[in-house]
Design a protein around this nucleic acid. Structure first.
Lengths: 241, 241
DNA sequence: CCATCATCTGATGTCTGACATCCTATAAGC
DNA sequence: GCTTATAGGATGTCAGACATCAGATGATGG
């Protein structure tokens, strides 16, 4: 079921290396980076492999190539980190500079709705696990999250779960979330949610309904995240295809 | 200022060709496509160039490569068409299967705010052009759009503008929008907006505040689009980097 | 002195051919 | 029938070369 991980592809190491150079500030935004020949010597890979890694970063807007001139680090503000990049809520909160926390976790099991049965049909489920949590940034509630996962992956208790569901699924079950389809909606705070988030009932919230897929493109996690939009920015980098 | 367009890169032609094969249905979703050797013969390019084109589509999730096995067309539902793909409002409405229209266009010029001056600093502007429009899908109002562009690109009248601002900027001025940074917010309908969109005052709306950049990463277009979220779906494909 | 043009240099883009590694299917052996 | 080799085909990587482009340099002519 789970993809066998042969040796990671070489050009991905190049990608990671270049990324670290940028993140460490050694190569700063807008600057020209060494030529392909120099880099392929430096990494001890062929120019073809190096180019594949660079191409990967170019299509993501992190690098920019200019024929006859050189390769440049994209400007910081172009780089992303928007909603189009899938990261865990924990990482997301931390990226905003806050400390991520969780409170009021509730674990329960229940039968599936017809729609859920369709989405999770690979797993042949009879029951589904549901996790309700309030996520906090610097102790302040910012999101109300409802996650639904196949029964078999459900943690036994809150301690097993830890802070990051993504991390738990990967460490415990080898299930890596790779892509998600999200729908953005406007909704209003109901009683329980309003209380948990400390907003007035009927206050407008942003809702992200998401289907997360694992490395084999099987639906792995269904989630509904409710945000107080004033407390969080939702940015997206949109690119012409 | 504007980038000189030398001959388009070869691998981009490969990209377009593969795209057309997929869109025409010749290669359908999930299927294996011909091997790299066959394709490089077919397109009459080297395998290196072909691979660069394929890599481009792989990082966008349109193709999937499996070492030792082959290259496959991604499943349809993975492919995108979400908000992370930048298209004009006109295209967007049409993609949903409606006929796109415009009503109540207002053109005006005004001085810049400090924030706008910062964003548009490349152009050395003294005044800015503002376009207010209601966009319709099958004659029904769905969005209230406010676009701000440098004075020099401002159309003289509504007829010049046509339906698509993107098209107008490209045809008339050679300015191609390539990327945008968008912020999603929740807001409420004010008097004029509520009337134009035929919703109650105070009704929650989704707002997209966007900065569009041209091919040289100069800010070209500032826009605030207001949507009635019930009338439109906002999907995003999110990928782990 | 300045403007224009040719030339040179270094960068990315493309080509060719080869070998390495991995996956699948088939056949051989038990 | 099950397991284990083996072969073939696919992508991944390598090496070296030439093509094309953009910017810098310097020569030339006004």
């Amino acid at each position: 079921m789970t993809e066998r991980h042969s040796r990671p592809l070489l050009y991905m190491e190049v990608v990671e290396f270049i990324r670290s150079k940028i993140e460490s500030g050694e190569w700063s935004y807008g600057e020209k980076i060494p030529s392909e020949n120099e880099l392929s010597d430096l990494f001890d890979v062929s120019r073809a492999t190096l180019r594949e890694g660079v191409a990967y970063l170019v299509t993501r807007g992190i690098l920019r190539r200019q024929r006859g001139v050189g390769t440049f680090v994209g400007k910081k503000e172009e780089i992303s980190g928007g909603l189009e990049t899938l990261i865990s809520i924990t990482q997301w909160i931390e990226k905003h500079g806050y400390q991520a926390g969780t409170s009021g976790t509730v674990l329960l099991r229940r039968p599936l709705s017809a729609a859920e049965r369709e989405i999770f049909k690979h797993w042949n489920l009879s029951t589904i696990g549901e996790i309700r949590r309030v996520r906090t940034a610097n102790e302040k509630p910012v999101m109300y999250c409802v996650d639904m996962i196949p029964d078999k992956f459900m943690p036994n208790n809150v301690t097993d779960l830890g802070n990051s569901l993504f991390q738990y699924l990967e460490d415990q079950w080898g299930q890596r979330v790779t892509v998600a389809r999200s729908t953005i909606e406007v909704t209003v705070a109901t009683g329980e949610m309003a209380e948990s988030l400390a907003v007035a009932r009927g206050a407008p919230l942003l809702r992200l309904r998401q289907i997360h897929y694992n490395q084999d493109m099987e639906a792995l996690l269904l989630s509904q995240d409710h945000f107080v939009s004033e407390r969080f920015r939702f940015d997206i980098i949109r690119r012409r295809s």
